[in-house]
C-alpha cells in the first residue's frame, strides 16, 4: 500500500492533536498496524511478537490483536479506523489479547472528518494477562460538521500484577452524539489508570461516557480521571464508577468539568461502592468554572479572561 491509497482527509485529520497519521502507515516506522477505510481493510503489517489479523464483515471488521507471551513491543501498535464519508455504518469488533509478561502500547485513531450522520460502533474485548504493562490510547475526531453517532462498548480484564493505562481523547472537532461504556475488571495487585477527556462544543454535541472499574483482586488499585468541557449548548455527562470488592483494594474517581456559555450542561456522576471492609474507595468532583485564582494568575501575564480560559481548557484536556 502507498500513502496515496489512504484518504488524505483522514491522514491530515488529527493534526490538531499533533498526530501525523503518515507516521503510522505501512512502510513507515517499525510498529505493527491495521488500517481501515470505512469497512475495507487497507493495510495490515505484523511484526515479531504480535499476531494482527482483520476480517471484513457486512458493516465493518473483526480485528484480532494478540501480543505473544513475553513480548516487549518497542513501537506502538497502530489501529486506524477511518471513515471518509458523511454517512454510513462502521462496526468494529476488536479482540485484543496481551498474553502473560508482555509490554505493549496500542494507539487507536478513530477519525471521521466528513461525518454528518455517520454511525460508528465498537464492541471490544480486551484480555490482559499476568505481569503485563499495557497502554491503550484511543483518539477520536468526528469532523467539524455535526459529528457522528459513536457508541463503543468495551470489556477489559486486567490480570494479576499488570498495569493498564487507558487514555480516551475526544477534544477536537465536534463530537456529535457519543455514548461510551467501558467496564474494567482489575485482578490481584493490578494497577489501573484511566483518563477520559471530552469536549462538547455546540448544541449538536451530547457526550455520555460511563467508565466503570471493578477492583476484584486483592490489593488492586485504580485512579479514574474524567475531564470534560461543554461550550455553547454542548452537553457532557461523565459517569465514573469504582467498586472495591476485594481486600485492601484502593480506588479513586475524579471528575472535573467546565461549563462555558449559555445552554451548556456538564454533569458528573461519580459512583463508588465498597463491599469489602478493608477496601478504600473515594471520589471528588468539581463542575462549573475554573478557580478565579487560576484565571488571575494567567491574566497577570497579560491574557484576557477568555484567553486564560482557553489555555486552561487546553491544559485540562491534554493527554498526560
Amino acid at each position: 500500500m502507498t500513502d496515496s491509497d489512504y484518504p488524505e482527509e483522514i491522514l491530515q485529520s488529527l493534526e490538531d492533536y499533533n498526530i501525523d497519521m503518515r507516521d503510522f502507515l505501512p512502510g513507515h516506522g517499525g510498529g505493527a498496524k491495521l488500517l481501515l477505510d470505512f469497512n475495507k481493510i487497507k493495510g495490515v503489517e505484523q511484526i515479531e511478537g504480535i499476531i494482527l489479523k482483520g476480517r471484513e464483515i457486512a458493516n465493518g471488521i473483526v480485528a484480532d490483536v494478540v501480543i505473544k507471551e513475553g513480548s516487549k513491543i518497542e513501537e506502538p501498535v497502530h489501529l486506524c479506523f477511518g471513515v471518509n464519508k458523511e454517512k454510513g455504518i462502521q462496526e468494529i469488533f476488536p479482540r485484543i489479547i496481551a498474553e502473560d509478561n508482555t509490554d505493549v502500547k496500542i494507539q487507536a485513531h478513530c477519525s471521521f472528518p466528513k461525518a454528518n450522520g455517520l454511525i460508528h460502533k465498537m464492541f471490544g474485548h480486551f484480555y490482559i494477562g499476568k505481569n503485563c504493562n499495557f497502554n491503550y490510547s484511543e483518539t477520536h475526531y468526528h469532523g467539524e460538521n455535526s459529528g457522528a453517532l459513536v457508541a463503543p462498548v468495551a470489556y477489559m480484564y486486567v490480570g494479576e500484577n499488570s498495569v493498564f493505562e487507558n487514555n480516551f481523547n475526544l477534544t477536537k472537532g465536534t463530537p456529535g452524539k457519543v455514548k461510551i461504556m467501558l467496564d474494567i475488571y482489575a485482578m490481584k495487585n493490578s494497577v489501573i489508570r484511566s483518563n477520559i477527556r471530552a469536549f462538547g462544543k455546540n448544541k449538536k454535541d451530547s457526550v455520555r461516557i460511563r467508565d466503570a472499574i471493578y477492583l476484584e483482586g486483592e490489593n488492586a488499585r485504580s485512579v479514574l480521571k474524567m475531564r470534560a468541557a461543554a461550550r455553547d449548548g454542548g452537553e457532557v455527562l461523565m459517569y465514573g464508577i469504582t467498586e472495591g470488592n476485594a481486600p485492601h483494594c484502593n480506588g479513586h474517581v475524579e471528575c472535573s468539568e467546565i461549563v462555558l456559555g449559555k445552554g451548556s450542561i456538564c454533569r458528573a456522576r461519580p459512583f463508588i461502592r465498597a463491599t469489602d471492609p478493608t477496601s478504600s474507595v473515594s471520589h471528588e468532583a468539581s463542575l462549573g468554572r475554573f478557580p478565579q485564582k487560576w484565571l488571575d494568575e494567567l491574566m497577570a501575564k497579560g491574557l484576557t479572561e477568555k484567553e486564560a480560559t482557553e489555555v486552561l481548557i487546553e491544559a485540562m484536556l491534554r493527554e498526560e
Binding site: K293, E297, E314, A315, M316
Partner: peptide, 13 residues
Amino acid sequence: TLAWQEPARIDGL
C-alpha cells in the same frame, strides 16, 4: 506582573 505566594498547580500545563 505579580508572582503569587502560593502559585496554582495546574495539570496538563
